[in-house]
């Protein structure tokens, strides 16, 4: 009786645990089922590289080239802002900061991660957009603005994982380098950061995934122009922001095309996840 009940509980827990896999499978299936047909119809390269997106027209034209470019620009920009800054904070917290300050930084970074993305977007819209407009020119709603705010938004991802992997570097490395007469900075730059590179790599990839996937904040700052951006100060649109804006009223082929955009995003994110996974596995083995 007792043994039977125990076995049932074990089975039930296995089923519960597998719900994660089930959820992932259903998500994948339904996104692809809704979006893949139109990609097949149009051909992947036409869908990806054609920059004409005119859903309102008779027959419609669905090319997400401009959005893909926008996403790439914004994501790269976010990395340019977020990676050096995040790495610097990670080094600061792991190596330079006095104990009390580094115990203060961790929760602060968590708070940064806890702020809703719409708040980031809103502050970007109200503060950074006017600043860019007056000091750098252009409409203010731009690739640059979105990239800077996204760069700040991915800081928590970069900092926490990089810091963990910096702290995980064996003390012997540090002492060895210092004993050989290296300065602290030479030790950090020449020994610690290379030793922690897998973790730092994983953090960059995860940050990239977050920047690429962010929607609401980007909608608020990028200007949502379907033009291919010619400079950082031009407005643009991204894969995600276009879905977020148009889903509300799209129907028929237009909606299908938005799901197809989701398929592209989803596939790309999965590739990034696998890459991050490979990085952190290497970190575990090292």
């Amino acid at each position: 009786m007792e043994a039977l009940r125990e076995r049932l509980i074990g089975r039930a827990l296995l089923v519960v645990a597998c719900s994660v896999i089930l959820a992932l499978a259903i998500i994948t299936y339904f996104i692809f089922q809704a979006g893949l047909p139109i990609i097949v119809r149009l051909g992947l390269d036409d869908f990806l590289f054609n920059t004409r997106w005119q859903p309102a027209e008779e027959g419609g034209s669905f090319g997400i080239g401009a959005m893909v470019l926008g996403s790439l620009w914004v994501t790269l920009g976010a990395l340019v802002v977020g990676v050096p800054l995040g790495l610097a904070v990670a080094v600061f917290s792991a190596e330079l900061a006095p104990e009390w300050l580094s115990t203060l930084i961790r929760p602060a970074i968590q708070l940064l991660a806890g702020i809703p993305s719409v708040i980031y977007g809103f502050v970007g819209l109200m503060v950074l957009v006017p600043w860019v407009r007056t000091h750098l020119g252009g409409p203010g709603l731009s690739v640059l603005t979105a990239a800077i705010v996204l760069g700040i938004m991915i800081l928590p991802n970069i900092i926490s994982i990089s810091e963990d992997s910096l702290r995980a570097v064996p003390a012997a490395y540090r002492e060895g380098a210092l004993a050989l007469g290296a300065t602290r900075w030479q030790t950090i730059w020449g020994v610690l950061i290379p030793a922690a590179r897998s973790g730092i790599g994983a953090s960059v990839i995860l940050g990239m995934g977050r920047a690429l996937g962010e929607t609401m904040a980007v909608i608020m700052m990028i200007g949502n122009s379907l033009q291919v951006p010619r400079s950082l100060l031009d407005p643009a649109t991204t894969v995600t922001s276009n879905i977020g804006l148009e889903m509300a009223y799209a129907s028929g082929e237009h909606r299908e095309a938005l799901f197809a955009t989701g398929v592209v995003l989803f596939a790309f994110i999965m590739v990034l996840n696998l890459a991050a996974n490979a990085f952190s596995r290497r970190r575990l083995q090292a």
Binding site: L24, I27, I31, G209, E214, I243, L258, F259, I269, M270
Partner: peptide, 17 residues
């Protein structure tokens, strides 16, 4: 792996799904 992959899925995809 499922949990990790799910954690990386952007919220707009959850919205679509």
């Amino acid at each position: 792996f499922g949990a990790e992959a799910l954690a990386g899925v952007p919220s707009i995809i959850f919205g679509l799904f």
